[in-house]
Every structure is written in structure tokens, then in C-alpha cells.
Design a protein around this nucleic acid. Structure first.
Length: 292
RNA sequence: GGCGCUGUAGCCAAGUGGCUAAGGCAGCGGAUUGCAAAUCCGCCAUCAUGGGUUCGACUCCCAUCAGCGCCU
């Protein structure tokens, strides 16, 4: 039995995108006399505003917010860095005698806050590129075979095509001499919902999808394209993560002439719905969640 | 009214007499521990309808219906 990580007893408000977390979070924070910690992998980026549906400056004046606009669009980030930053924020908040309320829809981050992650080595991109190249040279099964020879438990859990996780597992083994399957025990520490304060905003699927469509339209009305052009004008090299953000990726493609605006909007809507569906899969798998 | 073309899953689309009807998109489900708004996996049709030919038809023939085009 692993002890619950230090932040697991904070308040959490999550749910699929476009479900109204920001508004509810603001209300809840005021009642709890809490400060809000953003639980969102994209709101971290400065300059990505309308596409990430960040809380407005006005909203941020009503309740203080943390972990919004803390990195540049060209910076890479990681789950572990997020956790470290979150711990720092919560420590600050507590030193002021207040409570921390996490609000946002990045379920991986949520799970890590609730259950912790293993103390593994950071990404070594050089090493990853090397594995990547070799994998391409040796064919689809090769990576999986490599992992199976050093960590059969991990290999069994991972699909042979799951290159990213295969490579990370290999990376951990190479860096630490220990199989990743031995390191990763944290996620087994599930707790029942009634011992936690994790709330998930739930909607009928159709309602949620309609809200998503409306939000995407609203983002374009609010100048999503102009925002991205402005970032491009500053000549920044968007980080891997920022470049893949929903809405940004598609508009970037549109700006290089890959498809027209109407198609781009439609595509972002369906991608966003698919994302919401994946978020829901996460929440269903987390015993800590209470559905509202 | 006549002639011609087309009719395969929600959409796009291979197949053209004989293995369990390619593939893509969407949809649904799952995974997810240092890129996570990303990435990976699984499921998902009996071929417009009715007859006929044949050992055997999505594939050939006839009729019907629908769409498209042309003609009167």
C-alpha cells in the first residue's frame, strides 16, 4: 500500500472540455475561500489564450489562479514538471492559510496528482530519437522485442505499435538499469470517491457535443486565427506540445494552405469531441471521481 | 415520355462469379506514470428492392424503385 501523495487531498474540479469548469470553479473557490490551480496542460502556455479557453483576466482577479501563463510557447514541459510546480503552488496557497482547488481537464495530470508518479529519469530526446530511428529501420515489431528482452512485464502491457511508451520504457531501463514495470506502482493506489474531493462535471453526450460546437465557433469569433498569426509573427518555434494543441495544430495547417477555413472549423469540432470522449474514458477509470 | 449512367456501412471508396466483402473518415469502447488538447489499440456492412440464371452471385440477366445526365 502506497501512501497517498501530498496533493491528493486538495479539491479537484474536472470534466470534459467545454463543460463549464471555469465558471463552476470560480463559484466553488469563493465558497471555499480557495485559490485555483489550473489543471490544464495547455493553459500553461503564454500567448495561447483563446484556443485554450483560459479564464479571463477579470476572472483571475476575482480568485487568484496558479499555473496559467507560466511557460513560453516554445518551451517543452512534462508531467513531472507540472507536479513539481503544483506542489509549489499549493505550498504557497497553504502558507496563506487558504485551500487549493484544482480546476481543469487534463486527466493525466489529475491522476498523477491523486496517485503520484514514479521518480524516473527525465526525457532524453537524443536517446529517444536514436530508438526512433532504429525502430524505423528494423520494422514494427523490433522495439517491442527489445523491450521484451529486458522487461517482459512492461512489454506485455504495451501494444507493439505503442512506440512512445515502448521507447519511454526502454529509456527508463537504459537510464536506471531497472525495468519501468518495477518503478511504476503508484497508479495502483486507487482510493474510493467518498474519501476524496474530486468532482467531475458530467453532461449528456449530446449536450456536451453541442456545447463543444458552440465553443469552437466562439473561439473563431474571438480571433483564434489572429492569435496564432500573432504568435507566428513573433517568429517563435512552437514546442512539440503547443504545436499539437487542439485548434492550434489545425489552424496552423490551415495557414499553410492545407485546407480552407470552413473545413478547419469542422475538423476542430470533431477533434474536440473525440478529445472529450477520451477525457471521459479517463474519468471512468478513476475511482476517486464523483460525477456531478 | 425516351435513351444512357449510377446505386457496396452515417460519409468517401475497392472488389466484378467461388477464401470469413479492401481501405479511409465519422461513431462507440479501451489504454494512458517526464510530449498527454498528444499518442496507441479494439469494435463496427452481407453489397437499393423483387425475381431469375448458376453447383455457387455483390459480381451475369429481367423488372421495380431512387439519383444523375441527355433527348423529346
Amino acid at each position: 500500500m502506497v501512501a497517498a501523495p501530498p496533493l491528493a487531498d486538495c479539491w479537484f474540479l474536472s470534466g470534459p472540455t467545454a463543460g463549464g469548469k471555469t465558471a463552476v470553479g470560480l463559484e466553488l473557490a469563493q465558497r471555499l475561500n480557495a485559490e485555483i490551480v489550473s489543471l490544464d496542460s495547455m493553459a500553461l502556455y503564454r500567448g495561447l489564450d483563446v484556443g485554450t479557453a483560459k479564464p479571463t483576466l477579470k476572472e483571475r482577479r476575482i480568485v487568484s489562479h496558479h499555473l496559467i501563463d507560466v511557460i513560453e510557447p516554445e518551451q517543452e514541459f512534462s508531467l513531472a514538471q507540472y507536479l513539481a510546480a503544483a506542489e509549489q503552488s499549493v505550498a504557497d496557497i497553504r502558507s496563506r492559510g487558504r485551500q487549493a482547488l484544482f480546476v481543469g481537464g487534463t486527466p493525466l495530470y489529475l491522476k498523477a496528482l491523486l496517485r503520484g508518479i514514479f521518480e524516473g529519469p527525465p526525457a532524453d530526446w537524443e536517446l529517444r530519437r536514436r530508438w526512433q530511428r532504429q525502430a524505423e529501420a528494423h520494422g514494427p515489431q523490433w522495439l517491442h522485442e527489445q523491450l521484451a528482452s529486458v522487461d517482459s512485464a512492461a512489454a506485455e502491457r504495451l501494444h507493439p505499435n505503442d512506440m512512445r511508451r515502448l521507447i519511454r520504457a526502454l529509456e527508463v531501463y537504459e537510464k536506471t538499469g531497472r525495468p519501468i514495470s518495477e518503478w511504476q506502482q503508484q497508479f495502483d493506489a486507487a482510493r474510493p470517491a467518498d474519501q476524496c474531493r474530486v468532482f467531475v462535471l458530467d453532461w449528456p453526450r449530446e449536450t456536451l457535443y453541442a456545447r463543444i460546437d458552440a465553443r469552437v465557433d466562439a473561439m473563431f469569433d474571438a480571433g483564434l486565427v489572429a492569435e496564432i498569426e500573432a504568435v507566428l509573427d513573433r517568429d517563435v518555434n512552437l514546442s512539440l506540445t503547443a504545436r499539437q494543441a487542439l485548434g492550434y495544430r489545425e489552424v496552423l495547417e490551415h495557414l499553410t494552405g492545407q485546407r480552407d477555413l470552413a473545413e478547419t472549423i469542422a475538423l476542430i469540432k470533431t477533434r474536440t469531441r473525440q478529445f472529450a470522449k477520451r477525457q471521459l474514458t479517463w474519468f471512468r477509470s478513476l475511482s476517486e471521481c464523483r460525477w456531478l
